[in-house]
Nucleic acid binder design. Structure first.
Length: 436
DNA sequence: CCTCCACAGGAAGCGCAGGAGT
DNA sequence: ACTCCTGCGCTTCCTGTGGAGG
């Protein structure tokens, strides 16, 4: 999850560097006339891009049409419709993996709602809050207050004051507030936040507050306080991953606008869709892959994006994901992963275990042994086996390793561990991190 | 069938850092 | 400035589990 945001950051950084570079080229060019000509032509070439409007294929762009989410749009809008009739809608909880269009769908519905209520001048107001940036009750309330009193600055006021201000706003305008809390699992004191916001409804004579919670953590709901859970999840909506066909249609639609006509081959789109579907059904990765493939095509001065560019894009994106994931891991966990990758390489083709065991599969116990030896060798402290298991589970969650339970043929209960990515690639990424 | 193995993973607790309260 | 509280990373201790072997 984090990998994605890191990735977008580094992508942006890259384009910044490009801008900078061209700036240097420009200032240099002033001194030499021949240089100017050369650079103008070079720029011509650079401008000869496969993109028509790159913005549309960036992951921050929200398309007007959301294919395969009609049902969800329909449900959310019908759930919110009481607000335009002057009664309180149910709270809604949305969950689904990353890149399944949760945020885009909600934003789309809110846009439509805002458009409608402003035409009819109805007292319905909405606010979108990304809890990653506002990860506490105080910060969320602050953000809410600010969006309804844009001119005032509540920084420094107490929680209860801000809370009262929000209620005042509802009361004074008979307003129905719709608060979208994206990445709601990031809020530290969520129980209290949900409690006070839902209790606000009891205090209000006029108006209401409705919450829409969004989370991509499927387990998160179970960890909530039962009361919070029941009030937040009055209505639930699941966003399932896209399949390859759906992804393809999404991509086709986006590519038509983002790329120049006939700049993308049909087969490359199919390949991107297939790759993304196989990974996770994540539209964001698909879009990112497509964008990267286009950039690679540009850099090769190609006029058509073909499968080859997609393959390269996949490798480059994968490498970035691995690096950004690996670099945020705690040192000991990096060592564990390093042991796994080293062992995978070492054991290649020379496993002495008999039976039906797939190539590259390791036992939980032997990895721990190697890890201990390695840590000792490097003069580092070692974690206990219990915590090691915890680390292993986390690594699986990140998708860096795959775990299967030992079945017949293996004594005792253990787990078989396999790397999720290429061993050499992980090892080299880790070496950069571990050894200075 | 029982016992042993090789773990898995829950529960409790500990030391520490950093933030909140006073 | 001070204490108090809380979350985090981790250890210790423990119970559970599925298969191998006698």
């Amino acid at each position: 999850m984090n990998g994605m945001s890191n990735l977008s950051l580094s992508l942006r950084a890259e384009s910044d560097a490009e801008v900078l570079e061209s700036g240097i080229v420009e200032s240099k060019a002033k001194s030499e006339i021949s240089e100017i000509v050369k650079n103008v032509f070079e720029r011509r070439l650079l401008n000869a891009s496969v993109f028509a409007n790159k913005e549309i294929i960036s992951q921050h762009y929200i398309p007007e049409k959301l294919p395969f989410r009609e049902k969800q749009i329909d449900e959310i809008s019908s759930d919110l419709s009481p607000s335009i009739k002057g009664t309180k809608p149910n709270n809604i909880f949305l969950y689904g993996k990353t890149g399944t269009g949760k945020t885009a769908t909600v934003k789309h519905v809110l846009e439509q709602l805002t458009e409608f209520v402003s035409k009819q001048s109805l007292p319905v107001f909405s606010a979108y809050i990304n809890c990653r940036n506002h990860p506490s009750k105080y910060k969320v309330l602050l953000k809410v207050a600010k969006s309804f009193y844009p001119s005032k600055d509540f920084l420094g006021y107490s929680v209860s004051f801000i809370y009262e201000k929000i209620l005042d706003f509802c009361e004074a305008n008979s307003a129905h507030l719709i608060l979208v809390l994206d990445e709601i699992d990031k809020v530290k004191d969520l129980d209290e936040l949900v409690y006070s916001l839902t209790r606000g409804n009891d205090e209000l004579g006029k108006g209401s507050i409705t919450l829409i919670g969004i989370s991509n953590n499927l387990m998160f709901k179970e960890k909530l306080d039962p009361r919070t859970k029941s009030s937040l999840c009055e209505k639930e909506l699941v966003f399932s991953p896209y399949n390859a066909n759906e992804l393809k249609e999404i991509l086709v639609e986006r590519c038509e606008k983002a790329f120049k006509p006939k700049a993308v081959s049909d087969s490359s789109i199919s390949l991107v869709a297939a790759l993304a579907a196989q990974e996770s059904g994540d539209a964001r990765t698909a879009v990112m892959l497509m964008q990267r493939a286009g950039e690679i095509a540009d850099s090769e001065k190609a006029v058509l994006v073909v499968e080859q560019h997609v393959e390269k894009a996949k490798a480059s994106v994968e490498e970035e994901i691995i690096l950004s994931m690996v670099s945020t891991l705690p040192g000991q966990q990096q060592l564990v992963l390093y042991s796994i990758s080293a062992m995978t390489i070492q054991h290649k083709g020379s496993r002495r275990i008999t039976g039906e065991i797939e190539e590259g599969t390791l036992f939980s116990g032997e990895i721990f042994e190697t890890y201990c030896e390695m840590a000792k060798h490097l003069g580092r402290r070692t974690i206990t086996s219990r915590w090691y298991r915890q680390y292993i589970n986390e690594l699986e969650m990140y998708g860096l390793i795959l775990i299967t339970a030992s079945g017949k043929g293996i004594r005792g209960q253990t787990r078989l561990i396999k790397l999720g990515f290429d061993a050499e690639r992980i090892k080299s990424a880790l070496e950069k991190e571990l050894f200075k």
